[in-house]
Simulated scan of single mutants.
Amino acid sequence: MLHQTVIKIRGKVNKLVPIPLPKLIEGEGAITQTAQVLTALGGTKPLIVTDAMLVKLGIAKQLTDALDAENIAYALFDEVTPDPTFSLIGNGWQQYKQHGCDSVIALGGGSPMDCAKAIAASAVKNVDARKLVGMLRVRKALPPFIAIPTTAGTGSETTVVAVVTDPDKKKKFTLVDPSLVPAVAILDPLLMLGLPAKITAETGIDALTHAVESYIGFHATEQTKAYGYDAVKRIFANLPTAYADGSNIEARRQMSIASFNAGVAFTRASIGYAHAIAHQMGGYYHIPHGLANAVILPYILDFSFENALCRYAELAIAAGVATSDDSQVAAAHKFVAGVKALNQTLNIQTDFPELKASDIPELAKRAVREAYCDYPVPKLMNRTQCEDLLKKLVSA
């Protein structure tokens, strides 16, 4: 079977391509170390890539205050919007050049991270980001790059991917290259205290999706499984608390580490159908990626059950919903039920009001095509099966 053959080959190739691990700095107030980190990397004038809301909330000021204290000049690009486009990235690249920047600091969730990576890649290659879409098109070290996440979900501070949206084509494109991994990731739970409960929930399940899909796929290794297992354990233990009490610093800290670990896992072991479908939801309807993954994950767990049963059983123990006394089948069922119960606790919706039945054939076609020969899923899904799944997501 072509898919299995290609996946096996890619698995072997993956082991030959070294993926760097960002230097991790984490803890309360870690953002104050940014100036020293930047200097150590050789950066003197960074472009700060963020969004207007983080500026309005004063979170960006915490970063600029840290740079001001050390007399480090910077330029602020706060135009990032959800699902950054090639045009937006082009604007950021122009700002980078006009202000004579030599480094990049990404501050925010997945969108500022993706935007910053693409800007940095354009800067080092001196080409429009459109020309860097695909695998291994960058192949040059980025300028000094620091990632400071303000959500615990995407894991973008660890990944080789930048996702860019083309609104005209209603499609998302990816830049994939080990050089896109930031040099340093700064995890400061204090930056996440004001995160609304809804976003806390959606980004948290996004991290869970990364951990689970990397764990059950054919490219999983003992290393990636260890990172994924740890992420699942932290998420089940801390996400309900972070959701119910956003001011709980320790829960926020644990979730930031879980997101980082899940990012490390899926960067090396890839993803699955939850992401393939979620990408279409984002491209077509601008549904936030974390929310899309959160809604879709339970359906994918049901679909892959028989083929991933043993891995589910292991994750059930990590999640604390089963013990070694449970049979493998019982533990696997408990894991799927546990994920669904967690979604309910977090008030995650179960369908997409935006989804139009008339769009389903094209959405299914794109999702299946995206995953085929690219994602090491435990069970292949055909277009009809994908259409049937999507029909369950249409609001009644």
Rank of each mutant, 00 (worst) to 15 (best):
A244Y: 00
L389K: 01
E70Q: 15
Q349T: 12
V17T: 14
S259M: 13
D68R: 13
I148G: 11
A262L: 11
A201P: 13
F266D: 07
Y96N: 05
N238R: 03
G272E: 15
Q280K: 07
Y229M: 12
K365P: 00
E70L: 09
T5I: 13
A294F: 01
H333P: 00
E387P: 02
L136I: 10
M113C: 08
N307H: 14
N91D: 12
E354G: 02
I89M: 05
K391R: 15
T150H: 08
T159P: 14
T85R: 04
K233G: 10
D166T: 15
R234G: 07
V321W: 08
P84R: 01
A201W: 03
C115H: 05
G272D: 15
L190M: 09
R383G: 11
T384P: 00
A318H: 04
T151L: 09
G42P: 11
G108D: 08
L38I: 08
L132Y: 03
A269D: 10
A337Y: 02
Y74N: 05
V336Q: 11
Q344K: 12
K334D: 09
T159I: 04
Q62E: 10
G109H: 08
E250H: 11
P149K: 10
S156P: 00
S179K: 11
A269L: 10
A251W: 01
I72P: 15
S259I: 15
A73Y: 07
D102S: 04
V37S: 01
D245V: 10
V377T: 14
A251Q: 07
N347Q: 13
F218C: 05
P189E: 03
T384S: 08
T44R: 15
K140L: 09
Q4F: 05
V264E: 14
P22Q: 03
V104N: 04
F236C: 02
I31C: 01
A207Y: 03
E28A: 15
D351Y: 10
A69D: 04
D245H: 07
I25S: 07
E250Y: 03
S304D: 15
A258W: 00
V6A: 07
A364I: 06
I19C: 03
L195F: 01
I89G: 01
R139F: 07
S214L: 11
A357N: 10
R130F: 03
E222K: 13
A40D: 14
A237S: 14
A278Y: 04
T32E: 03
R252Y: 00
R366S: 07
V163N: 05
F335W: 09
V133T: 13
L389V: 05
S156C: 10
A292M: 08
F352I: 01
